[in-house]
Nucleic acid binder design. Structure first.
Lengths: 137, 137
DNA sequence: CAGTATCCCTGCGGATACTG
DNA sequence: CAGTATCCGCAGGGATACTG
């Protein structure tokens, strides 16, 4: 997604560059389908068509692109069996499964706060439409 | 980013919906500037212009949009002091700081594996350009 | 100071026909 | 089966002039 390289450093209390690696990670999983593919391959080798079926709504093109990107980053292995018809299997690497574990932390965060977030949204949206007219007369 | 709603469920060993909340989280921080803003506001109230200076490269428009989105999700509070000239301060909520903590896990992951990732990329890219000609003569 | 409004442009992602 | 090639639409994001 091409994030900013740095962001000033006038506050000695924290260095934004400490957080920069996160951006790299987000970059890697920010694609619309990356997480789904990561999840689908985390439990063992999966074939292309199986992924296509399992990940509802993904197009052939995007599946390929997502697969290639993850492979390039070393998160996926691609194994070709030179049979006919061809057989290709994708599997998450150890690194990817580690990443996958970290996702659990976010899942719990989301679960804990989803009500709060929904409420915040409702409140925000309500404020946006109602405030313009505080005193009609 | 509008992610897919679900993705099949033929494998009883895992349910992809367990991971769906992650997508919600990613959605919230997947913007190009969200993380930078989150980081910049995590340590206390910050003013608009200060953010603009601190986050190198961000445009006025994107800063505003990012701020509004985070505020809408309840991750940021916006406090207006009706002085002249106006003074507005943004601060991360508890929920946001919790999220911020989780980022640390990813940071360590990225730090541990950045060499491995770089190597994987180099290898992948090298393979892409060299393979077409395995035996010149 | 703290935004909003406007214009433009790039690249992600969707659909699908074609191929080794 | 497992892709690649091609075309296209749209939303995210950049730049900047204007305003309460």
């Amino acid at each position: 997604m091409e994030f900013p390289g740095k962001a000033g450093g006038m506050d000695p209390e924290f260095d934004i560059k400490d957080v920069c690696p996160v951006i790299e990670v987000i970059d890697r999983i920010s694609g619309k389908w990356s997480i789904s593919v990561l999840v689908a391959t985390a439990h063992g080798p999966v074939r292309f068509t199986e992924l296509e079926r399992q990940i509802t709504g993904i197009s052939r093109r995007m599946l390929t692109l997502t697969l290639r990107n993850l492979e390039r980053d070393g998160l996926l292995t691609r194994t070709v069996y030179p049979t006919v018809p061809p057989r290709v299997e994708y599997a998450a690497t150890g690194m990817a499964r580690e990443l996958y574990e970290h996702l659990a932390g976010f899942t719990s965060w989301a679960a804990r706060h989803q009500g709060e977030i929904a409420a915040a949204r409702t409140a925000y949206d309500a404020g946006r439409t109602a405030e313009p007219v505080p005193a009609p007369g």
